[in-house]
Design a protein around this nucleic acid. Structure first.
Ligand code: MN
Ligand code: MN
Ligand code: ZN
Ligand code: ZN
Lengths: 125, 125
DNA sequence: ATATTAATAGTAATAATTCCTATTACTATT
DNA sequence: AATAGTAATAGGAATTATTACTATTAATAT
């Protein structure tokens, strides 16, 4: 695969946020430095970066997002504000336990927590 | 909400399969008994049934599916054939464990197993 | 039976994503 | 440095999934 400035910028933009952005958000960002870029180029490169294992595509309900963090990890989804936040299920033995229970070949366990993020929680004791 | 024959048939079709069908699949099925039905009616009623809690909408990557089983349960996704199969994580204490670890209010834990279903596994010992 | 009005069929509109093609710009070779 | 070969891009068309609109139909209360 040949070097491409567009792809580098897209990659940098992704690596600079933890917000799991959509293709459209990336598009509007990359336009700031490359005004001539097209949305198709953004989609094509996001797909390539995913294929290369450089980033990971995340399906947040009906919304497609992109994650610079290609390491296996899980997410918390806030019902109130829609934020998608990384969570580390430190005890990865949870996943191993789950894997052992089935007559399928389980390669991955994806866990999404759903609820309300601390931004909306009353601090008052 | 008023009775509708269309909605009843859609519900029955969903309740007769474990395949987590798409709106389009439901549409083609319901056409067999109601040839005049429109795709919009299928979508509208699936959304209403979800809203009523009668069925559950499932996001399988970029594919939207519908599940008659509105009880909390998890799924296994086969990378080879794309099948989405119910799994019962019998030990629901797993989920309670996970819930206890975070400074968010966690209402639900969604778990998807990803791998290869037994249809493709060699039986040979 | 009639009136009321929610639900439908059919179609148009929208949104996300992919496809197509002429043009551009890396890269290797003279 | 110029040339040739070709991968990547820009821009727009096409596709797909879903929602919105509206005249007509049909469920329900009177
Ligand atoms: Mn993440
Ligand atoms: Mn299910
Ligand atoms: Zn929130
Ligand atoms: Zn399979």
């Amino acid at each position: 695969m040949r070097f491409s400035h567009q792809r580098e910028v897209i990659k940098e933009i992704l690596y600079a946020t933890n917000s799991h952005p959509t293709a459209d958000w990336v598009f509007s960002k990359v336009r700031m430095s490359i005004p001539s870029i097209s949305l198709g180029t953004v989609y094509r490169n996001l797909k390539q970066l995913d294929y290369l294992g450089v980033i990971k595509t995340i399906y947040d309900g009906p919304i497609t997002r992109y994650d610079w963090n290609n390491e296996p990890h899980d997410h918390f989804k806030c019902k109130k504000c829609g934020a998608l936040v990384d969570v580390a299920l430190s005890d990865s033995s949870i996943k191993e336990n789950i894997k052992d229970k089935f007559n399928f070949k389980v390669d991955d366990v994806e866990i999404t927590l759903i609820g309300t993020c601390n931004k909306h929680l009353k601090i008052n004791k």
